[in-house]
């Protein structure tokens, strides 16, 4: 078989694996939520509801169907982009998710941008100062940064910047219709709280990635061509060191979204994380299923893409195949 043929076979296998994992995740999710105690109809109708009223509502929501039918209806809908209607909110789940993403996505993006802007220069500086006091200090700070819980950072930021200085709102989100400025200002503290521990991790990765490339041949060649150590590092080292950094960054996207669940609750932001909380508290199982599958799907797909990208890029792997 040719190298290209084997490569496409490998890719096909990876993609098939991806689909199998996604389906398995959806089944696991459905089963777990199915045994969850708590009757959505009872939650919606409250303590005075009579049994016939509850039964009528369950029929209306399709909860009287057998599990297999409900699973197929749900997953079939999701496959064609129909996420169903929320039990409690009575609006299409897709629009509910879209509204909440309008908070969570900017939050995650701001956190990623912020952590990259902090971590990459700091990591490179530490590598350049390898073994000296500056390096030691940066590494120590990074250690502390990894150890600090992000919700505590959130609380401290509120204490300092909203209660103390009154610069930013302590929580809540005015909505984008209140103006981009007001919206962003509500997201600044949460994104900082989210970004700092991420920055610490990223700085460590950057530092070791740079240190690793410094030992490689082309840096030595560059230096032989008359570049100073620092020039060689910035011109050649950085670009190569960025590959692992970008990978980590990609893998951190779902982590950030998960971290947003906690932070959105600290800051009372109406994002995806808050939606999960509300949906669980109200047994809005359809919302819960959709959001959880969305998040899990994101992780599975990102991981799969990283895998596939490695298969395509990794020269050693190609050589072996050829």
């Amino acid at each position: 078989m040719t190298g290209a043929g084997r490569l496409s076979l490998l890719l096909a296998r990876r993609i098939a694996m991806l689909v199998v994992t996604l389906v398995a995740a959806s089944i696991a999710l459905f089963l777990v939520l199915d045994i969850l105690p708590g009757d959505p109809a009872l939650v919606m109708l409250g303590t005075e509801a009579r049994p016939d009223t509850l039964a009528a509502l369950r029929r209306e929501m399709g909860l009287d169907q057998p599990a297999l039918v409900r699973y197929v209806t749900w997953i079939g809908g999701v496959a064609v982009g129909d996420f169903g209607i929320s039990y409690t909110w009575r609006v299409p789940v897709a629009s509910l998710i879209a509204e909440r993403l309008a908070v969570t996505v900017p939050l995650a993006v701001m956190a990623i941008v912020l952590s990259t802007l902090i971590a990459v220069p700091v990591g490179v500086i530490a590598a350049a100062a390898h073994g000296r006091t500056l390096d030691w200090m940066i590494v120590s700070f990074a250690q502390v940064g990894v150890a600090v819980p992000n919700f505590w950072i959130g609380i401290l930021l509120v204490l300092g910047f909203s209660i103390g200085l009154g610069w930013f709102p302590a929580g809540g989100f005015p909505g984008w219709q209140a103006g981009v400025g007001a919206g962003l200002s509500a997201l600044i503290l949460p994104s900082v709280a989210l970004a700092l521990p991420q920055a610490a991790i990223l700085a460590r990765v950057t530092r070791s990635a740079v240190l690793e490339v410094v030992g490689e041949d082309y840096i030595r060649t560059a230096r032989a061509k008359g570049l100073t150590a620092r020039q060689a590092l910035w011109r050649h080292g950085l670009r190569n060191a960025l590959i692992p950094v970008v990978t980590i960054l990609g893998l951190q996207v779902p982590v950030l979204i998960a971290g947003a669940i906690l932070i959105e609750n600290v800051f009372a932001l109406p994002g995806l994380g808050r939606l999960i909380f509300q949906a669980l508290g109200q047994r809005d199982l359809i919302v819960l299923k959709d959001v959880a599958l969305l998040l899990a799907g994101l992780v599975i797909i990102v991981n799969g893409l990283v895998d596939i990208a490695y298969t395509l890029i990794d020269p050693r792997l190609k050589d072996r195949l050829a």
């Binding site: 696991a28 998960a258 669940i261 906690l262």
Partner: peptide, 10 residues
């Protein structure tokens, strides 16, 4: 893969 796909908090 399946277990880790879901956010731990969730």
């Amino acid at each position: 893969d399946v277990v880790f796909a879901f956010p731990a908090v969730l």
